[in-house]
Design a protein around this nucleic acid. Sequence first.
DNA 1: GACCTGACGGTAC
DNA 2: GGTACCGCCAGGT
Length: 105
Amino acid sequence: MDDYYQRVYKVVEQIPVGRVTTYGSIARYLGIASGARMVGYALNQAAETNIPAHRVVNRNGELTGRSHFPDDTMRERLEQENIRFVDEFQVDIERHLWDPNEEIE
DNA sequence: GACCTGACGGTAC
DNA sequence: GGTACCGCCAGGT
């Protein structure tokens, strides 16, 4: 249970600066391909920890979780990491996508 | 203890 | 190509 959350945090912490990943990629890496919701749910608590949850977006690159961050913290942090935005709250996922499945195997 | 909701994803229509 | 519905897992009501 909690260990599952720890795994999510561990993966998110491994996201390189200037790169973003998707809930589905993390979920699949953890063995729960259809548990993308759980990943986001876990990140909800991650926002209160030292986890860079702002680097995790949905498969479309949209900052669906920005509502859980104070103000525009999520967008501002991504901009500081030179993340390209295709929209006010949507990153260029195809350009900055980072799949743990491809990096760690 | 059952039902509903939630930072999503994929398939079906 | 866009919209709709269902599936996943966990937690709260």
